[in-house]
Nucleic acid binder design. Structure first.
Lengths: 141, 141
DNA sequence: CTAGATGCAAATGATTTGCTAGAAT
DNA sequence: ATTCTAGCAAATCATTTGCATCTAG
């Protein structure tokens, strides 16, 4: 789905359509780099020099709450945002922090976990940790 | 393994044995609640009223670097620490933040991920998200 | 017009760091 | 006697919040 369509859909719910929001969402949908809020800020600043980080966070939180993007939080580092809201897995470089998608059939273990723990399980997340090809290369020198 | 044994082992590596460290590690090994640094701080304060949060963090980082404990980071919330350093999975309550262990055979997907992505995959992590029995109960009232 | 959004700056909260006195070896 | 650690306070950094101004509807 395009940024404009998502924002039109949100307008039905009383969320205003602003050019900043359009720029933020377009960038997120058009990249597979899982940018941080700061990455997005730097990119959007090219078109809207006056934009503030507060607006970036505000927009990202709004989009997340409506289920249009995912936030990937990694403890110490800043969160990364994913324009694909469908559950899928990620491979994270422990060296440079890069995150790449890993698509495969989802684990069907949630019911089993619910039964065994009594939790009402609503979702799950898998991350693989390793060193990306570029960092492996860099480590050789 | 007991706290004392781990600390004796670390002494060989030049890490000093202090009563604060012993108290921190003993608490971590004796609980399955995955406490936060603050939880540990509050507990250790009972025995060492003068202990500081800095010491807690310092000790936790030292233990983590030597592979004796795990840090579980969850974006917004504070990290939780696990005295069991073997990889195992967790179920997290999205309501109260409680974390419980979920033991099952580990996923054997790391080689496949390595092949498909070019990453040198060293580990992985799975979290299930849901609502714990207590919070389900609370939501009824 | 007017509720909701922006931009800015100040606040927050977890974690880290710098420093001095103190304790472990 | 050295060197690492504890305790404390100040610093850091990502993210949030308060508020006055502005703008989409």
């Amino acid at each position: 789905m395009q940024a404009i369509d998502i924002l039109k859909q949100l307008k039905e719910k009383g969320v205003r359509f602003t050019p900043q929001r359009q720029a933020i969402l377009e960038y997120l949908l058009g990249t597979d780099t899982h940018p941080t809020a700061e990455d997005i800020y730097n990119h959007v600043k090219a078109k809207f020099p006056g934009v503030s980080l507060g607006t970036i966070y505000n927009t990202l939180n709004m989009l997340k709450e409506h289920g249009h993007i995912l936030e990937l939080s990694y403890g110490d580092m800043s969160s990364r945002f994913d324009g694909n809201p469908e559950n899928h897995y990620h491979v994270v470089c422990t060296d440079c922090g890069k995150v790449v998608d890993y698509h495969r059939p989802l684990l069907t273990m949630e019911d089993e976990v619910s039964e065994k723990t009594g939790f009402k399980v609503m979702g799950h997340r898998i991350e693989f940790y390793g060193v990306c090809p570029e960092c492996q290369e860099a480590l050789l020198h």
